[in-house]
Design a protein around this nucleic acid. Sequence first.
DNA 1: GCTTGCGCCTGAATGC
DNA 2: TGCATTCAGGCGCAAG
Length: 282
Amino acid sequence: MPELPEVEVVRLGLVDYVVGRTIVDAVVHDIRSVRRHLAGPHDFLAQVIGSTVVGARRRGKYLWLPLDSGDAIVVHLGMSGQMLVQAPSVAAPKHLRISFALGDGVELRFVDQRIFGGMFVSPAGAELPAEIAHIARDPLDPAFDRDDFASRIKRRKTGIKRALLDQTLISGVGNIYADESLWRSKLHFARPTEKLRRVEIDRVVVAATDVMTEALAQGGTSFDALYVNVNGQSGCFDRSLDAYGQEGLPCVRCGTLIRRDPFMNRSSYSCPVCQPRPRHPR
DNA sequence: GCTTGCGCCTGAATGC
DNA sequence: TGCATTCAGGCGCAAG
C-alpha cells in the first residue's frame, strides 16, 4: 500500500507530468471514488473540466492539485490507489476509477482496486484544503515541530503506537512504519504516552524520519518517464523491513524471534527483548 | 473533549 | 474441488 514516501514520489511525478496542463475532459468510472465529493460526480466533473493544474502538494498521505480557479483536487490513494500518466491508446487498466484527458495524448488515470482512496474538489483549497487542515505535518516536513509533538504526546492517555497512527498528532505514519520506527527506537507499542520521556519521544521521531527518508531515497530512483507509478506492492521500493511482517524471524539486532501481537484488529510486530512490554500497557 | 471501535472495499490466502 | 471465512489497511465518523 502507498506509504508516505510513495505518495511523495507520486507528487514528484505529478509535478513533472501534470502541473501546467489543462483538464480538457474527465470521466468518473466509479462514483464511489468521488464519494467524498458531496455534490456528486457530475458536479465533480463540472468543477475540474477546463481548469489548469498549477501545482502538486502534499500533507501526510493526502495530495492536492491546486487549480487556476483557486480550488483544488484533493486525492487520497487509500490502500491501493495509483496515479498513472498514460497515452489514451494504452488499454484501460483494471480498476480504472477516474480519468482526466490532459491534451496532447496524455491521460491521468486514477486506478484503485479497493476504493479506500478517492478524490474531491475543495473550494478555494489551493493553499490548504479545509477538509484536511486537521492533518498534522509529517516528519519529513521542514515545519514539523518536535517540541509541539512531544508536548501533545505527553498529554495523551494512550499507547505510543496509537499515537503514531493518529493523523492529528503526526501524519504519514502507517502500520508498517509505526512498527519499524518503534523497533528502531526500542519502544514497545503499548508504552503509555504520558509516561514517555522526552528522549524516547525524540528517538521515535528520528526513527520515523530515517525510515521514511531511506524509503524515499530508494523510491526516487525507480521513476519512469511516462509512468507515474506508486504501487508499493509492485516492489517499487525495496524496503528492508526489520520488524513488520517478520514474525518468527530473528531480530537482526539480538537474534530473538520477532513476535506478532493483535492490535486494533490488525497486527503489531516487535522484538520481545529489544522492545520489552511495559508493566502497565495501554 | 478525548479515546476507542466500526465500517468501508477487494482479492489473496487459508480453512473446512 | 469449491465454497466460506479471514486478513490486510487509512480514515471518517459514531459511540462511550
